[in-house]
Structure formats: C-alpha cells, structure tokens
Write a protein that binds this DNA or RNA. Structure first.
Length: 595
DNA sequence: GCCGTTTTCGGCCCGACTGTTTTCAGTCG
C-alpha cells in the first residue's frame, strides 16, 4: 500500500480512465444484459479522461469524488481501490471472463461484441493478429450472418486500425478540408457545401473530413461521379445514392460527403456536426418536447408533420434553445445553458487586437522585425500591436540573444516604430524557467521588457507544478507560455497539478497563453475553461516563425472558443493600454501580498 | 452502475444504415 507520488497524478487520470473504458468493453462483450453498466462505466471513463485536476486530490476530500459526473458509490470505491493498490477487483474478475486480446477490436469499425464473440468461440481466436489470419483464411464465410461484404468491411476496419491512431492536426485538416470544399463548390449542380463533423467543431485532431453538399436530387449521381474522378482522389470507398466516401492521395485522409436536399440541409448539418454526444442529447431533448429530430428535419412526434430543417438556427429555436456554436457541442452542459439563454458570447478572430508571441531574425525566424511589422499591418489591419518574444541563446541551440544584446534589439524596435509612426512593435521576451523555478534572465533586465512570457524547455519528465508556480510568483513574469508542454502526437503533457497552478495564476494576476503552433495548441480547450472559470486571463500568440504563420491565430482562437472564452477572457482583445493596466494589477497584488 | 423539478426505484441510448435476410440483428454516429 504505497502513497501516491506527485508524478503519478495526471497519468492516474488517464490510466484510470483507460481501465474504466476497458471494464465497459468487457461488459459490452458479455452481452446486452450489461448494457447499463456499459453506459455507466463509459460515462465514468469519459469523466476521467476529461478531468484536469488529479483524481487523487478528490479522494483526499472524500465526498468530492461523488460529485463528478458518472461517479457514485460503487465506482468511487473502485477509484479509491485503484489509487491504493493500482488495481480494480471488478476488472481483475472480468479479465478472466473475456478474451483480453480482442477487447481493443471493440473500438474498430466493423467489429461489434457479437461478431467478436462468435469468432472467438467458434475459431478460438484470441488476438488481433489471429483475427486477421482468420479473416484472410476464408473460414468465416460459412458462418451464419457473415457475408462477403461484412468480411470485407472488417478487413478494411482492421487495416485502418493503425491510421485511426494517427489523426490529422487541426491546421492540416483545415487546409485539406478547404481545398476539397473549393473543388466541390465548383461542381455543376452543387448549390452549397460546408464542412461539418469534428473539423467544424475545431477539434485539435481530426480523424476524417465530413462535408455536406446541397443539391437537387437529379444532380447527385453526376456530382458523385465527377468528384470521384478528381485527381486528388486516391481510392473510392463508397459512391452512390447520397453518400460519397473516398481516401485522398494526400495523407490518405478519408473524406465523407453527404448529399442533401435544400429543406433538410440544416438538420443534416446539425446532426453530422455532432459531437455524437451532443446529437444524442439533442434528440432526447427534442423527444421530451414532443418532437422527433433526425437528419431530415424536426417533426411533430404526434402527427409526423415536418416543422423545420432548412437551417440550424430555426431548429434550435424550435427546440427552445439558443443557437449553440459548433465548438461547444460536446454535451458538456451547453444544452442546459442554451435553454436558459446563458451561453457565453464566444470570442472571435476579429476581436483580436494583437499577436502576443512572435519570433524575429534575432532568434528562429528568417524575417527582420521591420518586415514582420509591415506584413502584419497590411494583412491584419485590425491589429494594434505585436509582441516580439525572442529567447536567449543557449538552451535551444538555435539562435537567440545574449542578455547584453537585448539593448540592440530594443534600439531596432524603436527605429521600426518610428518608421511606422506607431508604437506597433512591443518589446517582449520568452524567458526560460530553470530546474529550480528561477529564470534565465535577472529581474533588473526583465523589468525593461514590456511583456515577459515564461516557458519550460527542459525537465519534461518531472512534476513541473513547483517551477510554474514560482514563475507566477515573480512580479516580472506576465504570462506562462505553453504551460502543459505537450506536442500533439509526439509528446505527452508533463505532470502539473492544474488546480494548484490555476489558483496561483489567478491569485498572482498571471496570464496563461494559448500557443497556436499546430502541434502545441497549448493550453488545450479543457484547461482553458478550467483557467477562465477561476478568473485567469488567457492570451493567444502564434509563435510565428515566418510570415505565413500569423494565420495560426485562427486556430488559437478556435481553442479559446472550445474553452468557452468570451472576448473579455482574452487579454489580447484589449488595447495595449489595457494590457498595461493588467500588468500594473499584477504589480499591485505582488506588493500587497509582500511576495 | 448512475441518477433525480417523474428523487431511493425504475428508468436510462436514439434512429438510421448495412448486410443479411425475408423480418431482423448488429453496428454506427
């Protein structure tokens, strides 16, 4: 019986969530008698996976654990059991009843519990690889209910299994999606086309690109044919009726297209945007109100009369709900808020008045400050400032300044601002938080900058709560840059006690950044929400390394929107004068608390 | 197993599609 180390915190949430998901899979395998247990454990797993605060801290406060969605007496006991012993007895018991090697297949397209069970029992198949061999052997075809096409489906599911785990990053998906969309809109007969699915919700990673195409029925076949013949199509999976599904040459990305009539466009858009959880909750909501909601529209449940479906706005209105922006459609309380007309008015890209993180030729950008400034002023006329945040040389090996060089950079910035006739370029720095929480620039130098953002660039495998807290306590640090350190698809977030850190950021008036680099998007949406709920200000920076990267602001804003941010939550929707007030506010707190 | 403006029991996650059948089980979003 060991104590829980700090390092174990965040990984507990994920491992425990995975274990609860496995328990759900076991029950799913065991049959429909257990379907409600499946729902319960799935819900609990989802809660754990989305939890930003280490689960162990809930346990310390006893009753708190059961306030979490989907966790009541039994699962709470099992969670405590896990934290004490690393095991859950229920899971140990279930493991003896199911073929463990096949459980992962439960999440593979084409496989369900019944199919897996049948094959396991008849052919003694126990692993994914044995399943593959069985599928190729042709022995399944003699089974009842196993036709050629079903078997082909399962083979494809298995083949795509790996690709399911390598999803597209949002930025790449946006670019691929808009290319495809452009081509579709140009096809004869296409009245309108729009991205839906997880891409429309701006999720940070995207499995496949979903598009809805509005067209008269008589053009569907022609549209389908013409699209499938386009040069970027690698392979056609389905094409016929109202569905087109293809793999693109580029990245082997799957694109799913649905053709719809004009009167059902809104309903289809709504349900194909999802999330699945939001759609189900919305259908249930409709049901309670005496409506039937499906992809063709909203109907009177009693008479079957069609009531709405042309656009999403009228559907939400009919259901008595405020319009819910796609980014919020995750069944995380947005429907209840929409019913009370209390949804936040989300921040928009147009609200942004400056970029809080920009690199120049002094570190890892090819471009000179003046070129950057003139480019940004031309392309983003609404911007009032950009903050140059180069770092010191040394730790990263690539460029950077010596401490004494900043005086030269300041002179260059002054010159550029003079030439522009506006204080457009702000003097910032990206300072590194060292192992002991101190910074790699002295306070008397830091005081000369207009904006100081602090990053961790080493010691990824440690608990970094202490270092980040110490940075917050420095009155000269205005912002924490990429606070979680994760690199999407490459490196997990380091361990941080987010509850503690967010409380510290709030009490010290320290801002937290959304770094909009495509593989970072750090802070991520859920932590952004946790932070603003405690009153922490968020700022968004692109970390631009070339002139094109200023466009990344759009995905940075998307993360903020997924984190329920209004304009007021985002510091760089303010004028620089207001940013100065924010900095003074921190100074005054630090003086009063005597830190 | 969870949950409650139907609250300590009796509900919960729906409708469409696919592939297989010939009336429906299994899977998907």
């Amino acid at each position: 019986m060991g104590t829980i180390s700090n390092q174990a915190y965040m990984s507990s949430n994920l491992t425990l969530g995975d274990m609860l998901h496995e328990i759900a899979s076991c029950y799913r395998y065991l049959g429909s008698d257990y379907r409600f247990k499946v729902m319960a454990y799935t819900a609990a797993a989802r809660t754990l996976h989305g939890l930003n605060i280490d689960i162990a801290s809930y346990v310390k406060r006893g009753a708190e654990l059961r306030k979490l969605r989907g966790i009541d007496e039994d699962i709470a006991l099992e969670i405590m059991q896990y934290l004490r012993t690393g095991k859950i007895k229920t899971y140990e018991r279930l493991k003896k009843k199911v073929p463990l090697g096949l459980l992962e297949l439960m999440d593979v397209k084409g496989f369900g519990p019944v199919t897996i069970k049948t094959i396991h029992e008849k052919l003694h198949v126990n692993t994914r690889n044995e399943m593959k061999i069985a599928l190729l052997s042709g022995r399944l075809e003699s089974f009842e209910g196993m036709g050629q096409r079903k078997i082909e489906n399962m083979k494809r599911g298995l083949k795509l299994f790996k690709e399911v785990h390598s999803q597209l990053q949002l930025w790449d998906a946006i670019s691929i999606g808009s290319d495809v969309l452009k081509q579709l809109l140009a096809l004869p007969g296409v009245k309108n086309a729009v991205i839906c699915g997880s891409l429309r919700r701006n999720k940070e990673t995207i499995a496949d690109i979903d598009i809805i195409v509005m067209a008269r029925r008589k053009y569907w076949e022609k549209i389908s044919q013409t699209f499938c013949d386009l040069p970027f199509v690698h392979r056609v999976i389905v094409a016929g009726g109202k569905r087109i599904s293809v793999l693109l040459k580029n990245h082997n990305t799957q694109v799913d297209i649905q053709l719809v009539h004009e009167h059902e466009y809104g309903a289809a858009l709504l349900l194909l945007t999802g999330s699945k959880e939001h759609s189900i909750a919305l259908k249930k909501w409709a049901d309670n109100k005496g409506f039937l909601l499906n992809e063709n529209g909203v109907f009177d449940a009693g008479t079957g009369k069609w009531l709405a479906g042309t656009n999403e706005e009228e559907i939400y209105r009919l259901l008595g709900l405020q319009f819910i922006p796609p980014e919020l459609r995750e069944d995380k309380g947005e429907i209840e808020k929409a019913a009370k007309h209390r949804l936040p008015l989300l921040v928009e890209e147009n609200d942004i008045r400056g970029d809080m993180q920009v690199h120049s030729s002094w570190s890892n950008n090819e471009e000179e400050i003046e070129t950057i400034a003139r480019h940004v002023r031309r392309v983003y006329p609404q911007y009032e400032y950009i903050v140059i945040t180069d770092c010191l040389s040394g730790q990263l090996g690539t460029g950077g300044l010596q401490p004494e060089e900043f005086i030269n950079q300041f002179a260059e910035i002054d010159m550029v601002n003079k030439a522009l006739g506006q204080q457009f370029v702000k003097k910032g720095v990206d300072v590194h938080i060292l192992e002991d929480g101190s910074l790699n620039l002295q306070d008397n130098i830091l005081q000369q900058f207009e904006w100081v953002t602090a990053s961790i660039v080493s010691g990824f495998d440690k608990d970094n709560t202490g270092r980040l807290i110490k940075a917050c306590e420095n009155p000269n640090v205005h912002c924490l840059n990429h606070p979680s350190g994760r690199l999407i698809g490459k490196r997990d977030a380091w361990t941080v006690n987010w509850k503690k850190l967010i409380e510290k950021a709030a009490s010290t008036g320290t801002c937290m950044a959304i770094n909009a680099q495509p593989d970072r998007l750090d802070l991520k949406d859920e932590l952004v929400k946790a932070a603003i709920d405690k009153g922490v200000k968020i700022c968004i920076g692109t970390g631009a390394r070339d002139l094109n990267q200023f466009d990344l602001m759009s995905t940075g804003v998307a993360v903020a929107r997924r984190g329920w941010c209004t304009k007021e939550n985002i510091l760089n929707t303010c004028s620089w004068k207001e940013v100065e007030y924010f900095k003074q506010y921190k100074q005054s707190i630090m003086c009063n608390t005597g830190i």
